[in-house]
């Protein structure tokens, strides 16, 4: 394991994550438009939605019921998780290189990201 090999793996991982997310969001979008294409939109007023679009449990539940908003949010959550996975892979990579200092640096970044993502639960 060297830096180049590690970065290559990380790059591929990110691309796969974005693709999976985009396909999910697209599927949700098509489903949404199929059912609501003629509905009027009201996005000029900020009115945060319920747990179905804001919490992990709500999003998963909504997506499992085949609701378009839940599927789109699930795809977007997947997208947010790709850089998180990138940092996790970097920790493993640095450990394989026996670079304990940068493994620790990556672990700190992962901890900060986890703190932020805990707000979704």
């Amino acid at each position: 394991m060297n830096d180049r090999r590690l970065e290559d793996i990380i790059g591929q991982l990110l691309r796969a994550g974005v693709l999976l997310s985009a396909v999910t969001v697209l599927a949700g979008g098509i489903l949404y438009l199929a059912g609501n294409h003629a509905a009027q939109v009201h996005d000029h007023v900020f009115a945060p939605g319920g747990p179905d679009t804001r919490t992990l449990a709500g999003i998963v539940r909504s997506a499992a019921h085949g609701e378009s908003a839940g599927i789109i949010q699930l795809g977007l959550l997947l997208l947010v998780l790709t850089p998180v996975a990138r940092v996790a892979v970097a920790i493993v990579g640095f450990l394989l290189e026996r670079d304990r200092f940068y493994a620790m640096v990556s672990l700190i970044v992962l901890a900060i990201l986890t703190f932020s993502l805990m707000h979704v639960t």
């Binding site: 949404y32 996005d43 945060p48 679009t53 789109i72 947010v80 993502l117 707000h119």
Partner: peptide, 28 residues
């Protein structure tokens, strides 16, 4: 940039800023 943005995303979801019907076409 991606890692930085992911750090805000948790709070954005929590506050309801991620609206599926706006974010879907913008992201794609």
């Amino acid at each position: 940039i991606g890692v930085t943005a992911a750090a805000s995303a948790g709070l954005y979801f929590h506050n309801g800023y991620i609206n599926p019907h706006v974010a879907m076409p913008v992201m794609l």
